[in-house]
């Protein structure tokens, strides 16, 4: 059995008096693209910073490639690359000088990928980084992360500031190509709000809320479990109330029910009422995210 690339157990981190992360558990196996999804302030960035030893957790353990990132610092860092949500570079450097600076610390650096990405992102190598827009700085950070071909890519809101065209291209082509080059060994951990755009890329995800992991599933399992049922009846009065589901919404003769793993029960219940129309569909990742967190909120 292979060693998890990322293993977090019982992580606690507190800023002054408020808990940012409270007992988080996370495991990511090699070759997976794992999404870290959550609302603003849920603890995603804090989790990533604890992972990278940028913050020291008060409790819990963090392992990268089976190693302690605080003790085996260099060994861990050699195998990963990180793109933070806000990217800063040294202002006196140009794009090329910045790439050369970061390349000097790496054992491996793919010059062809660098050239290809500079062309694709239309970045002028001679331009000073102070003259770059926020999106362009993100693109430069992505190049510095991808060119060393690390085993683990940690991306915190990587598409923040990118225009829609570049965003799509980045997700489909750049990240997709990065992982496809060595699918068994290249792992991605990405935190994002743009869940719909990353849906095609993410193999599995963890929903974080209030510093805790609420749900961890593969995307296939999520699609099987979280389903939406549409039913239309002959008469509005015939539309039933369905209990023990995530949500149930009536609209005249129509009924829309979102279920969590209770598809057969609800479908049988509705079939007995002989609706005019009955169909089911899987929720998208974004809808699952909304549904799960809404349910959690209702329960509180």
């Amino acid at each position: 059995m292979s060693t998890p690339v990322i293993e977090i157990t019982g992580l606690h981190y507190r800023y002054d008096k408020s808990d940012a992360v409270h007992g988080l558990n996370l495991k990511v196996m090699p070759g997976r693209c794992h999404g870290l999804l959550g609302r603003n302030g849920s603890g995603k960035t804090t989790t990533m910073k604890c992972l990278l030893s940028l913050l020291r957790p008060q409790q819990g353990s963090v392992r990268l490639f089976g190693l302690d990132p605080a003790k085996d610092e260099v060994a861990v860092k050699k195998r990963l690359a990180y793109v933070p949500d806000y990217v800063g570079f040294y202002p006196w450097m140009s794009v090329q000088e910045t790439l050369d600076f970061f390349a000097s610390f790496r054992d491996r650096w793919n010059d062809r990928t660098e050239k290809d990405l500079l062309e694709r992102f239309q970045l002028d190598p001679k331009k000073k980084v102070t003259a770059l827009s926020k999106g362009q700085r993100t693109q430069l950070a992505l190049i510095t992360a991808i060119c060393p071909e690390p085993e683990l890519l940690i991306l915190d809101e990587p598409t923040s500031g990118l225009d829609p065209i570049v965003r799509r291209e980045f997700i489909e082509t750049v990240i997709g190509a990065y992982q496809d080059a060595d699918p068994a060994n290249r792992t991605i951990l990405v935190s994002t709000h743009l869940i719909a755009e990353f849906e095609g890329l993410i193999d599995e995800f963890t929903l974080i809320d209030a510093g805790r992991d609420v749900l961890t599933l593969t995307t296939d399992a999520a699609r099987e479990r979280y389903q939406r049922i549409h039913a239309r009846f002959t008469d509005a009065a015939a539309v039933p109330d369905i209990a023990n589901v995530i949500s149930s919404r009536k609209n005249g003769r129509n009924l829309e029910v979102v279920v969590n793993g209770e598809l057969d029960r609800v479908m049988n219940q509705l079939r007995q009422l002989r609706p005019e129309e009955l169909r089911q569909e899987s929720l998208s990742l974004e809808e699952t995210f909304t549904a799960v967190l809404s349910t959690k909120k209702d329960r509180q």
Binding site: E73, G88, F89
Partner: peptide
């Protein structure tokens, strides 16, 4: 000021 600390601390160089 330049917000370069995070990126610098993740390059493979010991603190």
């Amino acid at each position: 000021e330049h917000q370069t600390l995070d990126l610098q601390l993740t390059i493979p160089v010991s603190r």
